[in-house]
């Protein structure tokens, strides 16, 4: 690949996801019935896609589970 070449890419916009430290934590989240309902799919063993419009519900549920997620969005990008 030419180092200066333009890379073909497809953009997926308005995606919300949870990135876990390990697969076990992702399993733990999926085992939570209320949370599983808001998860659209598992992209990898550590990445869970959140259904559109359900981010706030997922964050609330994570907090109820005593997790302290970092919440990052486009406005927090440096």
């Amino acid at each position: 690949m030419n180092p200066g070449s333009r890379l073909p890419v497809k953009l997926h916009r308005r995606v919300s996801l949870v990135l876990t430290e390990d697969a076990v934590l992702a399993e733990e989240l999926l085992a939570r019935k209320k949370l599983a309902g808001d998860i659209a799919g598992r992209l990898t063993d550590k990445v869970l896609l959140i259904r559109p419009g359900r981010v706030a519900a997922v964050i609330d549920e994570l907090k109820k589970m005593s997790h302290t997620p970092q919440i990052l969005d486009r406005t927090s990008a440096s």
Binding site: P3, L19, L25, H67
Partner: peptide, 26 residues
């Protein structure tokens, strides 16, 4: 550390490349 365990990304953009090597290049 506990906070590092979970990151919720809200309203972000994912870039899908055709091959792993292109992702590495990006």
């Amino acid at each position: 550390n506990k906070r590092e365990r979970l990151i919720v990304y809200s309203d972000v953009t994912l870039l899908e490349f055709e091959t792993p090597s292109e992702l590495d290049a990006a």
